[in-house]
């Protein structure tokens, strides 16, 4: 790495002028966000604001049409998704993506093994004491111990969200992208989730997409508000709650 590239290392995630075009449609237009390590950063916005598209570009599911994304100073703009994961980036999806045909234990095992390597081993069975201890520690963290051997497809919606989070926590994540982690959860489940997020160590930088203003403003150090693919406002939760434009969007007023 040359010294010039190291200038940005102060930031866990550096998004510089990223653009995403689908044909004539501009889904995300010129977004720049710099997130220091350990920050809890919320991305707010109405449906169609481009929040998930932004996440897809950070995680590598979509290649940006323009702009640059750096993870701890390292340019990852053109890296395939699986390579970004090995560099410490993790994400969850808005709609739970779990392996329906596999048990909770196997889901968590795949997540553990994915970041640790030896993913193609066919010699030893996946279940042994050492591996079990690791997956069980992970299950403990997301309170799914009781469901370890149930197929993931048979879990309730809330449990699938927990599993989704557990898989993202495997290994040592450095930057965690959570796409509406509270979507479809009951009030008590939301509270449990918030509590769980608060226990995460500051070595993990969190970026959360959230619909629910209260959750977002409560959990975040800083907030970015997106609207129609553009950046509308950025600041501390206090600044954002005082921002009239943000209120107008959430109340459904037409803002351009």
């Amino acid at each position: 790495m040359t010294p010039a590239e190291q200038i940005d290392t102060a930031h866990a995630l550096d998004i510089e002028g990223v653009v995403c075009r689908f044909g004539a449609l501009v889904a995300v237009s010129d977004i720049s966000i710099a997130i220091p390590p350990g920050e809890r950063h919320a991305v707010l916005g109405a449906n169609g604001a481009g929040k998930t598209t932004l996440f897809n570009m950070i995680s590598g599911d979509i290649t940006p049409s323009a702009g640059r994304i750096a993870l701890f100073g390292e340019d990852i703009t053109s890296l395939p998704p699986q390579r970004r994961v090995l560099k410490g980036l993790r994400r969850t999806y808005q709609k739970s993506l779990v392996f329906d045909g596999l048990s909770v234990r196997e889901n968590l095992f795949l997540a553990e093994r994915g970041v640790r390597g030896r993913r193609f081993s066919v010699l030893a069975a996946a279940r042994n004491e050492q591996e079990n201890a690791k997956t069980e520690a992970l299950a403990e963290r997301i309170s799914l111990m009781a469901k370890l051997d149930s197929p993931a497809g048979e879990l309730s919606h809330g449990e699938q969200r927990q599993l989704e989070l557990g898989m993202a926590l495997a290994g040592n994540p450095r930057v965690l992208l959570l796409d509406e982690p509270a979507a479809g959860l009951s009030l008590s489940e939301r509270r449990q989730l918030l509590g769980m997020l608060e226990t995460l160590p500051k070595t993990i930088t969190l970026v959360i997409i959230e619909h629910d203003l209260d959750i977002a403003l409560q959990a975040a150090d800083r907030v970015t508000v997106m609207h129609n693919g553009r950046m509308l406002a950025a600041g501390t939760p206090e600044e954002i709650s005082a921002n009239q434009t943000v209120h107008d969007i959430y109340m459904g007023k037409n803002v351009n």
Partner: peptide
């Protein structure tokens, strides 16, 4: 088989 996209986001090729 179950979810290629998810597997990719766990670090698998």
């Amino acid at each position: 088989r179950d979810n290629p996209r998810r597997l990719r986001s766990l670090g698998y090729d």
